[in-house]
Nucleic acid binder design. Structure first.
Lengths: 118, 118
DNA sequence: GATGCTACTTACCAAAACGAAACTACTTAC
DNA sequence: GTAAGTAGTTTCGTTTTGGTAAGTAGCATC
């Protein structure tokens, strides 16, 4: 009798690893929301971004942006105005998350609808 | 002078909320991977699922499955064999995550490639 | 009757994530 | 000189999450 084991093909295993990697890079409560905000808006200054993401503390936003920058999903640009302003935007790598963000956005909206219907 | 504030349209705000909701439902290190495994394989028994998700402890798997069940993404079926077996599968609600899972899978695979190229 | 399989649970602990509040440093405006 | 806006950092503490190891309970096999 064959043991019920890996029904998963190699391609599925690869995709599964992909899901895991993506999850790891977007870990935590805020990263997807930050990426989504930058995706929908293009650019944001620190204060302006924090105003658009309800409930996030500056310390947390700062840390999350650093993480995203380290993984090359977000670009940070200091602009030499008075006072100094800093702009955040998605890198091309970050922009390539568009399908993920859009799928999550849509699914979330539909999920909410389907819950309310009951 | 206009204050640089909500450049985001109402539709974007809605999508953003959707992203947040999705993120909340799939929070933590394992939920997306569990959903993806069930998506690629259809059904899994507890032990078999735990074998396919490397590194997850039974306690954690149990808890994550309960969370997913509570949010109606996963269905749990007890089958009265000897010894008892339990099957887990996605609900239709869970299956509707297909776009999210596929987008994450693909992006992850591509990200890995692009990192290795350097 | 000891071992092993099923599907978990329990107890305990460590680490990471998150959060509130205050503070820094610079400049402009009043 | 006082307040307000820029972009954060620091401190401290709580909460959540994840992990290890062992235990449970029923049955089946050796």
């Amino acid at each position: 009798m064959k043991k019920e084991k890996s029904q998963l093909t190699d391609i599925c295993q690869l995709q599964l690893q992909g899901v895991k990697d993506t999850q790891d890079l977007l870990s935590g409560k805020w990263k997807t929301v930050i990426v989504a905000a930058l995706y929908y808006n293009g650019k944001f200054r620190f204060m302006n971004l924090s105003r658009h993401i309800e409930g996030i503390a500056p310390k947390v936003l700062s840390k999350e942006l650093k993480d995203l920058e380290m993984n090359q999903l977000v670009k940070r640009t200091v602009i030499d105005t008075m006072p100094i302003t800093v702009e955040y935007e998605l890198t091309s790598q970050g922009k390539s998350l568009n399908k993920v963000i859009e799928a999550m956005g849509e699914w979330g909206v539909n999920y909410r609808k389907s819950i309310l219907k009951k």
